[in-house]
């Protein structure tokens, strides 16, 4: 048993205890929350289908291997596993796309391998930059986003490099 095994059950238990103390109808509220998530989930399903099809075809054609090979010198310079390079390229652009690429990586390497772990940390600790900016500013009347994109992309880059370093350090 590890420390990390305790986190999820403790959060769930803690939230429920707090809810019951505050006299919340925990069962019905849970159902409501799950229902809302189900709705947003269904709305992203077509995008996941579209992008997984595109990524799947791209991988099957051998283009992925060529792409990974082309960027491998950069990757090896940072001790960055070549398998994760496509994920770094897709991550800022599309969340469903990144999910599809990640699923592909886990099909070829074990999740507990070095590359598998780096990919997991990368996906877990970054967001879909372009999508977030488009949606957030798209909902307002703002036309000039100023230095938002630059800062966001630098944050992503830091995340990618640090994910490989931390996995090296901890495992």
């Amino acid at each position: 048993m590890k420390f990390t095994d305790f986190i999820i059950p403790c959060i769930i238990g803690g939230v429920l205890i707090f809810g019951l103390i505050k006299d919340v109808d925990v069962f019905n509220e849970f159902i409501e929350g799950a229902k809302e998530t189900l709705k947003t989930g269904i709305s992203i399903l077509p995008a996941i289908i579209a992008l997984m099809t595109a990524v799947g075809m791209f991988k099957a054609s051998g283009a992925f291997d060529i792409l990974s090979y082309a960027v491998s010198p950069v990757a090896s310079f940072f001790h960055f596993p070549a398998e994760c390079m496509p994920l770094a390229l897709v991550r800022p652009i599309s969340g469903s796309g990144a999910l599809a690429v990640y699923e592909g990586i886990l099909n070829s390497v074990h999740p507990d391998s070095f590359a598998g772990r780096v990919a997991s940390v990368m996906l877990g600790s970054t967001e879909t930059t372009f999508y977030t900016i488009a949606v957030y500013f798209g909902s307002t009347k703002i036309k000039k986003i100023r230095h938002t994109l630059f800062c966001a992309l630098m944050a992503d880059l830091t995340g990618f490099i640090v994910s490989a370093i931390t996995v090296c350090f901890f495992f």
Binding site: K2, T4, H110, D112, G116, M122, S125, G159
Partner: peptide, 20 residues
């Protein structure tokens, strides 16, 4: 995909996320 400890990457995620 058969990870033995799916959450063992948490410290890495925290540090990476924090630094980014």
């Amino acid at each position: 995909h058969g990870s033995l400890q799916p959450f063992d990457i948490l410290p890495c995620v925290w540090i990476t996320s924090f630094l980014s």
